[in-house]
Design a protein around this nucleic acid. Structure first.
Lengths: 274, 274
DNA sequence: GCTTGAACCTCCCGTGGCGGGAGGATCTAC
DNA sequence: GTAGATCCTCCCGCCACGGGAGGTTCAAGC
């Protein structure tokens, strides 16, 4: 531009490394996989980098800095320079990926925060209890696989804190209503009980999956996981929950849930007929 | 507890894998590195896992799920069970690490979001321009290393959006005042110019580092990075900035900055004397 | 007791993005 | 001509496993 007279600057690998802050080893690596090749070689085989190579290196480093893999970078930089659609797709995908990872890390942070809370409050006298808590985390995660947990986390974000608080509140209301019906001996096919049940299942469905595209297989697995977990671990949860709800004693929750489940089953068996 | 009579259950490796959702290969790996050893072996060498092994596996999986490395897990599970201080330290460190990573990912997301904005608005007709923008990202990052960028990002969070807006506003005011002094031909040692200069450097210091612990080496590198970047890239930035500030034409900014720098140098040379 | 198929064993290579060292060739300055 | 810096290629190592090869052992049915 300003009188180069066609004489371009060349760099040795060491000079390029110093100028760009990339290690020599990394430059060897990029050369090896063909991502940033030295445009020329001296007679004895030493690399000479041209300005085009320098610019390519800058691009690679920028995209690496965005968290893309070398393969992705190679793919997107290989195409003709006037086509940015691939770049757009790649960055869009990467952004989505980052959103997902952010959600996971947020989950992790709250989890660790919770455990630290257990450790810091002296509510945790027995180390054995802490270890047991750890083990239970793993058990939970065995039932609910990563993708299901991701989905639920996403869903929680979608719903927002306020909605979740409302849902929890409504859940308690439903639980209490069911409790009273149960104590009153109302049969499960009573319209009032069925109304509670309908709201209950609707809530569960609303929490589990939004109205995106329906993926029946996924829904199926989600439900199965929930059911299996509930089947095997309801006892522990009952103890936990009933400790937090005053009007409920330790054996109360299983009974209510059993009552509700019978109502749900009755509803399912009569949904087509009635 | 409920009448085991000392006869514990044993699991083959396949059973354990199915029960916990861990692959067999992973179990081999854990055995190999001594993290979850099969407590027993049959005469022919097949692994028999005991209940203790199962619990150890649960712990390992839970801690892995928190993002810890197998080495960290091995260290913390190796110590006596009644000492949770190591666990506390580990989880604390992990939480800090996650905070850092979260901050980085937030940075990444805004960066990618910005690039996608460039691509989506048709303000970007020339693919070449986009590539150049990419290259400049890398150049910027060459000057400001990861730790410095982390520091600045943290600092921005500390300061908050409002403070930053105020600072930008004050920066513009200072720039305009300096511009007027320059046009008026006021010498750099004039008290008024020196006042502007003092506010300028104070602002820079305030933005760069809070009043945490003073790490002089770090401050030094931060300043050096800023100076070097400014020295080599002021031209491009000038063009960019002057496009956004109406009272400034393309050549204006370098002149003002040069003027200000001379004032800063004069101030530094006379700070001990006066 | 024999067969068969499932489950198990060990050994080893591969992943991604380089780091780092060995052992030798080449450049540059004096 | 020589010394020291720089360069070259080749290769092993990381981390947490995945996956295959090739062989042994188990459990069930006949």
């Amino acid at each position: 531009m300003t009188g180069n007279d066609g004489i371009e600057r060349r760099w040795t690998i060491g000079e390029l490394a110093k100028a760009t802050g990339v290690t020599i080893r990394t430059l060897y690596h990029y050369d090896e996989i063909g991502l940033v090749r030295a445009g020329e070689r001296t007679a004895s085989g030493h690399r000479r980098y041209t300005e085009a190579d320098l610019r390519q290196l800058y691009r690679v480093r920028a995209l690496r800095g965005l968290g893309l893999s070398l393969e992705e970078i190679a793919n997107v930089l290989r195409r003709p320079a006037d086509d940015l659609t691939a770049m757009r797709d790649l960055l869009g995908a990467q952004l989505a990926e980052l959103e997902l990872q952010s959600a996971r890390m947020a989950q992790l942070k709250t989890k660790i925060g919770g455990l630290l809370g257990l450790l810091d409050q002296s509510v945790m006298p027995d180390p054995e209890d802490f270890m047991t808590a750890l083990e239970e985390i793993s058990v939970y995660e065995t039932y609910f696989g990563q993708e299901i947990r991701d989905h639920l986390a996403q869903r929680r974000i979608q719903l927002g804190e306020d909605t979740l608080r409302d849902l929890r509140a409504e859940w308690l209301v439903l639980l209490k209503e069911a409790h009273q019906h149960m104590l009153a001996g109302t049969p499960v096919d009573d319209p009032q009980v069925q109304a509670v049940t309908a709201r209950w299942t609707a809530m569960a469905a609303a929490i589990q999956s939004g109205d995106e595209q329906r993926d029946e297989q996924f829904d199926e697995r989600l439900k199965a996981a929930g059911t299996a977990w509930w089947r095997d671990n309801s006892a522990g949860v009952s103890a936990e929950v009933s400790r937090q709800i005053e009007w409920l004693d330790a054996d109360g929750l299983p009974a209510i849930l059993d009552y509700l489940q019978r109502a749900v089953i009755w509803a399912r068996e009569h949904e087509s007929g009635e």
